[in-house]
Simulated scan of single mutants.
Amino acid sequence: MAYFVFPAPAPTTLPVTNSTAVFPVGRVYCIGRNYRWSQDEATPQEMPTWFMKPANAVVQAQGVLPYPPGTGDFCHEIELVVAIGRGGQNIAPAQVETHHIWGYAAGLDLTRRDLQLQAKRAGGPWEAAKAFDHSAPCTPLVSATVCGHPKQGAVWLTVNGVERQRADLADLLWPVPELVAMLSRSVTLAPGDLIYTGTPVGVGPLQGGDVVQGGVADIGQFSMTVGNASYGSSTPFTGDSA
């Protein structure tokens, strides 16, 4: 009879708003940008860049946000999060909302920007920059049966009370149905998958002691305090990234 060589870790879960139920997190897909960062930016014609984070990078967006090791440029990216309740491959955009989305949340795609820029220059993978511990804070999920499928509403983030990011869900370059459908042509989506749908202009560095607050429409809001940096200090990010 087979047995685990050590106790299996507990699954990663997220609370559900106004419910005792929890949502089991599967895979975490993150979409690069997906908002215009300049007025003259062309409308995209191809699937945007996407990458993954491990399920246990997802944590509740509350309390202390640990400053990760190995970086001096720890950056925030506020995003709408889509929770998949029914999987599929080659999903038609018209079927996404009615058959596949379980709900929504507000989340942060946190980035070790200096490591990302190093990876870009070397043509290497982004895992070191994106897939670290606590890199995907998320608010409690709201069922689509409660909130519907939001097409507009503010996406915003402040640091120490100063606004850094603001956009509207209507500004998404690839709206959620098209985004989920495109992703399903590349991978077979499964129940429990989360999709971080991209961030507006204004990404920037966080330092120890910063209070970072944000939210998405009526879906969710959060407030977190950044822990002390392991070493180094943040420097402003001014380049092009995701």
Rank of each mutant, 00 (worst) to 15 (best):
I84L: 05
W126C: 03
A105G: 15
K120W: 01
Q116H: 04
N160P: 06
E79R: 02
R112A: 04
V155K: 00
A128K: 08
D114K: 07
R113F: 02
A144R: 15
D109G: 05
L115W: 00
G161C: 07
T158G: 05
A119Y: 03
A136D: 11
G148W: 14
Y67Q: 05
G124I: 00
D114F: 09
P140L: 11
H149A: 07
V142P: 00
V155H: 00
P150T: 03
L115M: 06
Q152E: 14
E97Q: 14
T98Y: 08
G85E: 00
Y104Q: 02
D73N: 15
L157F: 04
L157D: 03
L108C: 06
T139F: 13
N160S: 08
P140N: 12
L157E: 06
K130S: 12
R112L: 05
G88K: 10
S135G: 08
A131S: 15
Y104P: 04
G85K: 01
A154T: 08
P150V: 01
S135I: 03
S143L: 11
V162W: 00
S135T: 03
Q89A: 15
P150W: 03
A94M: 14
I101K: 09
A144N: 14
K120M: 09
F74L: 14
Y67K: 06
T145C: 07
D133R: 14
W102N: 00
Q152Y: 09
G107V: 11
Y104W: 15
A94W: 11
W102F: 15
G103V: 11
T145E: 14
V81T: 12
H99Y: 13
F132M: 05
